[in-house]
Simulated assay, not measured.
Amino acid sequence: MFWQKFIANFSVFDLIVVAMLSALGIATKPIIVPITHIITGPLLIPGGVVAGGFYMMWLVLGAGLTGKLGTASLIGLVQALMVFGTGVFGSHGAMTLLSYTMPGVAIDLMLWLTRHRICCLPCSFFAGVLANICGAAFVNILYFRLPFVPLMLTLTVGALSGGLGGIIAYKVLQQLKKTGFGSKTA
């Protein structure tokens, strides 16, 4: 019942956006991860923290394109199901469902609390920051269990990377809206 009401809020266009951005997020992962490991390896920072900013970009972009609450969570859930179902890129097992979905929930919660819809640079930036911090903290709790100082360094780098992803998403959204693509309400 909940899922029917939730999905009914999305148009076919919105669901296509969710599917496309979910696929793009998963497809770009094998390209981004090796590049980020070159940078993060010598610094002993988990590579996913830096790469995460670029994963979160797709969630922020989707939320901006549809202008609807729940879009980022839905993109994260679809990505998790793709990874979980194929097993190609997932190393988190069943926790993949949470590790991919929780950053989207963080974005949607922030948008709900602030009443923004990826409408300005600050909300896009902070959506990316929150999503990547949420993802990095969640993975740290489950797997890495870093000591305090390395954890703070990791979360700081994650915040910067997530914010950059949010800025990129906002700039892409601006260009797409100039062409008439996307939500007219966002």
Rank of each mutant, 00 (worst) to 15 (best):
residue 84 F to S: 03
residue 114 T to N: 12
residue 91 S to D: 00
residue 25 G to I: 05
residue 11 S to T: 15
residue 94 A to E: 01
residue 111 L to T: 06
residue 103 P to T: 10
residue 109 L to W: 10
residue 90 G to L: 01
residue 90 G to H: 02
residue 168 I to M: 13
residue 167 I to W: 02
residue 103 P to V: 04
residue 59 L to G: 13
residue 26 I to F: 00
residue 112 W to A: 06
residue 177 K to L: 13
residue 162 G to Y: 02
residue 144 F to C: 01
residue 4 Q to E: 15
residue 24 L to T: 08
residue 127 A to S: 10
residue 186 A to D: 07
residue 32 I to Q: 05
residue 64 G to R: 01
residue 60 V to P: 03
residue 144 F to R: 04
residue 12 V to R: 11
residue 96 T to L: 00
residue 116 H to L: 05
residue 33 V to T: 15
residue 162 G to V: 03
residue 100 Y to C: 04
residue 2 F to W: 11
residue 134 C to F: 03
residue 182 G to Y: 02
residue 133 I to A: 12
residue 38 I to S: 08
residue 46 P to A: 03
residue 15 L to K: 05
residue 53 G to S: 04
residue 109 L to D: 04
residue 51 A to R: 05
residue 59 L to Q: 09
residue 20 M to N: 09
residue 88 V to W: 01
residue 44 L to V: 13
residue 73 S to Y: 00
residue 58 W to S: 07
residue 97 L to Q: 09
residue 152 M to W: 11
residue 181 F to P: 08
residue 118 I to D: 09
residue 96 T to A: 00
residue 114 T to M: 12
residue 2 F to S: 04
residue 120 C to P: 08
residue 7 I to S: 14
residue 109 L to P: 11
residue 44 L to H: 15
residue 52 G to Y: 03
residue 170 Y to F: 15
residue 69 L to N: 08
residue 109 L to N: 06
residue 82 M to K: 04
residue 128 G to F: 06
residue 81 L to C: 06
residue 87 G to Y: 03
residue 70 G to M: 03
residue 94 A to Q: 01
residue 75 I to C: 09
residue 174 Q to N: 12
residue 76 G to A: 09
residue 134 C to S: 15
residue 160 L to E: 14
residue 67 G to I: 11
residue 80 A to Q: 09
residue 140 N to G: 08
residue 89 F to D: 00
residue 54 F to E: 08
residue 60 V to K: 02
residue 171 K to R: 08
residue 142 L to H: 03
residue 175 Q to C: 13
residue 172 V to E: 05
residue 102 M to A: 02
residue 5 K to I: 11
residue 148 F to N: 14
residue 89 F to L: 09
residue 143 Y to L: 01
residue 51 A to K: 07
residue 70 G to D: 03
residue 130 L to M: 01
residue 74 L to W: 11
residue 170 Y to M: 13
residue 35 I to S: 02
residue 150 P to M: 11
residue 166 G to Y: 07
residue 41 G to L: 08
residue 60 V to I: 11
residue 87 G to E: 09
residue 104 G to W: 00
residue 165 G to F: 10
residue 78 V to E: 08
residue 151 L to A: 04
residue 68 K to C: 04
residue 156 T to L: 15
residue 132 N to P: 08
residue 35 I to F: 07
residue 119 C to V: 12
residue 148 F to H: 12
residue 116 H to I: 07
residue 61 L to F: 10
residue 106 A to M: 11
residue 139 V to D: 00
residue 144 F to D: 04
residue 122 P to D: 11
residue 89 F to W: 11
residue 77 L to Q: 08
residue 178 K to N: 14
residue 116 H to V: 04
residue 40 T to I: 08
residue 186 A to E: 11
residue 161 S to L: 14
residue 14 D to S: 06
residue 136 A to F: 06
residue 155 L to A: 06
residue 156 T to R: 06
residue 139 V to T: 00
residue 176 L to C: 14
residue 17 V to C: 11
residue 162 G to A: 14
